Simulated assay, not measured.
Amino acid sequence: MNISDEPILCIHNPHPETIAHTVEGFLNQLGGPVMISVEGKDTSRTRAICTLLHGNEPSGLRAVHRWLRSGGTPAVNIICFIISVKAALTEELHKHRILPGQRDMNRCFAPPYDDYNGRIAEHMLDLVDSYQPECMIDIHNTSGMSPAFGVVTHEDPAHEALIALFTHHLIVTDLKLGALMEISSSNMPVVTVECGGANDERSDQLAVDGLARYLFEGHVLKLPNEGVEIELYRHPVRLELHPDSLIDFSDEPVPDMDLTVPKDLEQHNFGTAPEGTLIGWLGERCGTRILRVQNAIGRDMFSTFFHVDGQKLYTARPLKLFMITSNRAIALSDCLLYASFEREYTYLKS
């Protein structure tokens, strides 16, 4: 590969005194996507971290910055990817999820890799393959106010143990979107950690505490014999909107909108939304044509999860709702929320 084919800069064992005091200063030092490798006490094993796939999700970055400045030696070798540096620095700090006109970075980890973010993803996968880490965590913030939770594509003790370092909410998904966690395997479990809202100090603290356990504990792929409780949700679907839809967030229908979402819908994150919970008011212009709910094999699941009475959109049965967003851009480019059946819930205790 020539230099232009390698968009990720690799930095080895940076000295704590060379790390800028502030997160913004640190990002300016990096300038673009990087992989930082740090030698651990046990040099025969490696673990991987990814953070800042989205430029407006800083909790993991803040935790990594704090660790690098502390100089703490991890239990094993660490490779740490910090990706959407340019998006995070554009205009005001952490304003942009991605740079305008680019693909969502966490939808690029499957072919084709034929744009800039795709080349970053491909280079990152090549680096992961060369280092052969025993596991990876991908740290995010939720796009709305929400408790912390983890997402995995495999349901087994290793994935559960990694999530339990951070949170007791776990979602097992079979949806394929090109996300980093989809490269997970029995040889290298990969999990996504959603720390909670980006502007919540509790999210930052959760990232700091969970990362410390991941960095400094000798073994992280087995649950402790006791004291761990996990609430597990399976097979979610996404309530997606047509990207050209007109939407708003209000306590009453907004004229000329295709969908008006109640401002307090986020209160249902990880709670049970009873049958008949109001999701929003549909406009007369398009009705349900702006909505899509599909399962992992592409089957239309709209009427299984939701129903319409007049112009009102309701839950069709008791549901667990999560990742509800009040960000218009994310609702249109990604989804408004995820939902799973109440019966898909399991309570695990070690």
Rank of each mutant, 00 (worst) to 15 (best):
P224A: 10
R289M: 08
E266C: 04
I82M: 01
D5P: 00
G210V: 05
D42E: 11
T46D: 02
Y131P: 00
F26I: 05
I19C: 02
T51H: 01
L52I: 05
V191E: 07
H219N: 14
H159P: 00
G271K: 15
L319S: 05
C10W: 12
L221I: 11
G72W: 06
M105N: 10
L61Q: 09
G40A: 05
G144F: 01
V228N: 01
T325D: 04
I137R: 04
I183S: 07
I171E: 03
E134H: 04
M136H: 01
Q267E: 08
Y131V: 03
I247R: 06
I79K: 04
C286M: 15
R69E: 01
P74Y: 08
S333F: 01
V261C: 02
D5K: 09
F109K: 06
V254G: 00
A63V: 07
E226F: 12
E155Q: 08
I8M: 05
G55V: 10
T173V: 09
F249W: 04
E275R: 13
C135Q: 05
G271D: 13
D258S: 04
R69G: 00
S203M: 07
D204K: 09
Y345W: 15
E275G: 14
E342F: 10
S4E: 14
K95I: 13
G283K: 09
E275S: 12
K176D: 11
A121R: 10
G101T: 13
D174C: 11
L89C: 05
S203P: 02
Y233Q: 08
E231H: 15
I297T: 15
I247H: 05
E57V: 09
D138T: 09
S203E: 04
L336I: 08
W67N: 05
D309N: 13
L239R: 03
S143K: 08
E24D: 08
L336S: 04
D244T: 15
S4P: 00
E252K: 15
F249R: 03
E155K: 10
G276K: 05
Y131K: 13
M1I: 07
I139G: 06
R47D: 03
L9M: 14
M188V: 04
D114A: 12
I171C: 12
T173D: 00
I83E: 03
I330G: 02
P133F: 06
A179Y: 03
I11Y: 02
R107T: 11
P224K: 12
E252A: 14
Q311Y: 13
F109N: 03
S303V: 05
H154S: 07
H307D: 09
G287N: 07
D334H: 05
P224N: 10
V237E: 07
I82Q: 06
D174T: 15
P147Y: 10
T192P: 00
R45Y: 07
S130I: 03
P236A: 03
R285P: 00
K95F: 06
E344R: 09
C10Y: 12
L215I: 06
Y345T: 15
L162K: 01
G31V: 13
H307Q: 10
I183R: 08
A179V: 10
R299G: 01
A331S: 14
C10S: 14
R213P: 00
